[in-house]
Amino acid sequence: MEKVKSLADLKKISESFKKGIDLREKSSHPDDIVQVKVAMATCGIASGAKETMEYLSSELEKRGIEAIVTQTGCMGYCYAEPTIEVTLPGQNPVVYGEVDIRKADEIIEKYIKTGELVNGIIPQNYETID
């Protein structure tokens, strides 16, 4: 990692990540990549988010789907943990709640493979500042 020596350096890093350079480096088809975020705060992990995340990353690879599975913090839906957010290429993110291994399998088979939504969507009920 290079040091950030000036404000201009910082802005350069910020820009490069905003443009999704990270995504391009990881994939030869950046436009086809599926992004999955798993809410991994203490509350999520306690309800099994770790197992869900491990399952998702290994199964997506096994089933030949190019995807990036990352962890993130608490989305706030404690009543529906574990929660994950799936972004299909060119589409708005969809949040699913109570994603155990069975639900994760259904999400891969139906939503990720065919784009067909499955039960258990959590509508985003908040606005975030940019």
Binding site: I13, Q71, G73, C74, N125, E127, T128
Partner: peptide, 23 residues
């Protein structure tokens, strides 16, 4: 949407273990 996330703006959005996402 009655909620507005300012303090929680990045929670559940970025990977907390990756400074680049925060930047």
């Amino acid at each position: 949407k009655k909620q507005l996330r300012i303090a929680l703006r990045n929670c559940g959005f970025i990977n907390p273990e990756n400074v680049d996402e925060y930047i």
